[in-house]
């Protein structure tokens, strides 16, 4: 039985395995499609739209769409580049992302995408929302100023019974991803570190690590995000 699929990204033929998503197939083939909410090992939900591509003139999220034979995907075209840039800008203006003093700087995916897409001044007005910081856990801080609500923490940080440490609270424009107050107090060390690692931005901070990593050795100091995928 033939398990491979052939399709095109920006005119280039890509061979993929059946059942792979476009993002998986593209990345395996060395073609970068930017992602944020998508996370290895968890079922994609398509909530950030960073990975938007065009298939038969329709916008689709590449992290949720499976590949199929003969599919023609548009990825690196001006229209999509600008759209992705506008999504990044929207995330910047809807939170309080003060990169210069954020300890995730240099390791932050949102910041790295901002650089990759050459965001200078966002086209949207800043909303400067009033946000707080939850420091009640002895292990981590949850800084709501920086949360982009990608749900990566909700999907990956669970206790041994599968119970979530993080969950949505409130509705509409008041919605926030919060840490369960009780579970936060007894959070094991390795899980706390993993939570910080899995958060693409600086919303989950493992306490007292701070700026231990010098400028110059951080993940995106030398090469832009995506260059680890591109061939």
């Amino acid at each position: 039985m033939n398990n491979t699929v052939k399709f095109k990204i920006d005119g280039n033929i890509v061979t993929a395995e059946k059942g792979q998503t476009i993002v998986e197939a593209a990345h395996a083939a060395g073609i970068y499609i930017p992602t944020l909410c998508n996370f290895k090992g968890v079922k994609p939900k398509g909530c950030c739209r960073m990975c938007s591509v065009k298939i038969n003139s329709r916008y689709m999220t590449a992290c949720t769409t499976p590949v199929s034979d003969g599919m023609e995907v548009e990825n690196n075209i001006d229209e999509l580049v600008d759209m992705r840039k506008s999504i990044i800008e929207l995330m910047f203006v809807s939170g309080n992302h003060f990169c210069p003093s954020c300890e995730k700087s240099g390791n932050c995916e949102l910041q790295a995408l901002g650089y990759r897409y050459q965001m200078l001044v966002p086209r949207f007005p800043f909303s400067f929302p009033q946000k707080g910081i939850d420091a009640s856990s002895p292990k981590i801080m949850k800084d709501q100023n920086r949360c982009i609500m990608c749900k990566r923490c909700m999907k990956t940080i669970k206790d041994e019974n599968g119970k979530n440490y993080f969950a949505f609270k409130n509705r509409s424009n008041k919605v926030e991803v919060v840490l369960d107050a009780e579970m936060g107090k007894t959070m094991p060390d390795d899980l706390a570190k993993l939570a910080m690692e899995n958060c693409p931005v600086g919303s989950i901070i493992y306490k007292e690590i701070g700026y231990n990593e010098p400028i110059g050795t951080r993940k995106y100091d030398k090469t832009p995000i995506g260059s680890e995928i591109e061939v």
């Binding site: 003093s101 910081i133 420091a135 701070g210 700026y211």
Partner: peptide, 14 residues
């Protein structure tokens, strides 16, 4: 106020 203490040296430079 309310910020993690280790942020101060980086924040105050501004």
């Amino acid at each position: 106020q309310g910020r993690p203490y280790w942020e101060a040296p980086v924040l105050v430079q501004r």
